[in-house]
């Protein structure tokens, strides 16, 4: 295989227009979040400071991944960027409960509109955890196991769409699995854990197939491909542990509350055990 076959774009970070637009949106979102939480506190409401830190950090890593230099060969750098955009930034942003904050600070009319959107049928369908998992990881399978990845090089619009999809579907999946913000339908722990298991497995298998073969129509140096695939595999593990820990801590807190409640109500002791 001759060297000119190793084409490096579209693997590298787009310092282009889309990256810029997403980065500016992230900076604006962080400013709006901080303004909102400060307003809430001035009003006398409690809003933990660590949520501000989480949201700001999520936006900051997003901006860095889009604009900053990333280590490794082209495929590894692409994977590192993917890891931040689709997994790390969404976890930090979702932990900060942005929808809850928005609902608290918006004026009544806007709040009603937002609530209507959040509780609408399409939104409820989108945050069904298994569907969110399919939209997220299914999109990755399309990207890496069809000729889509190779064609990004020639089609800037498609490239833009893929970038936006990676960020939005990562946010959607994290939002659906964590279920920290108010939505109309609350899904059970089992449903969310199963969606996480399925998504994690599909992600791990995809990473292993990338280790064996690059996306169709592209060629990367073997070492770069292997590092990138392993980064995807183990990076996915980290994201999965983070999501699992969030769900597990929710369960721990909720079951503790239920037990205290039962004891107060004087349910027979055997039933508590």
């Amino acid at each position: 295989m001759s060297d000119h076959h190793l084409h490096h774009a579209p693997a590298v970070a787009p310092t282009g227009l889309v990256g810029m637009v997403i980065a500016v949106a992230a900076v604006l979102a962080a400013s709006a979040y901080l303004a909102g939480s400060i307003r809430l506190r001035l009003r006398g409401d409690a809003w933990p400071g660590w949520r501000d830190t989480c949201f700001t950090a999520g936006c900051a890593v997003l901006v860095y991944a889009l604009l900053g230099p990333l280590p490794g060969g082209p495929f590894t750098a692409h994977m590192g960027q993917h890891l931040v955009l689709a997994m790390i930034a969404p976890v930090l942003v979702v932990l900060a409960r942005p929808l809850t904050l928005l609902l608290r600070v918006l004026p009544t009319r806007l709040r009603r509109t937002l609530l209507a959107v959040a509780h609408s049928a399409p939104a409820s369908v989108l945050v069904f955890p298994p569907l969110a998992a399919v939209l997220d990881v299914g999109g990755l399978w399309l990207l890496y196991r069809t000729s889509l990845f190779a064609s990004l090089h020639h089609q800037p619009l498609l490239h833009a769409a893929v970038h936006v999809h990676v960020v939005v579907s990562g946010l959607l999946f994290t939002f659906a699995v964590c279920q920290l913000d108010p939505v109309r339908r609350r899904w059970s722990l089992a449903c969310r854990a199963t969606a996480l298991l399925g998504a994690g497995a599909a992600h791990a298998v995809l990473a292993k197939t990338l280790y064996a073969a690059p996306p169709p129509g592209t060629a990367f140096a073997t070492a770069d491909l292997h590092t990138g695939a392993q980064l995807m595999y183990y990076g996915g593990d980290l994201a999965e542990i983070a999501l699992a820990a969030i769900i597990a801590i929710q369960w721990y807190a909720a079951s503790g509350r239920t037990r205290t409640h039962r004891q107060r109500q004087g349910v027979p002791r055997m039933a508590c055990s």
Partner: peptide, 9 residues
Amino acid sequence: GLLHTAELL
């Protein structure tokens, strides 16, 4: 893939 994910969970 399934087993690896299940181990972490």
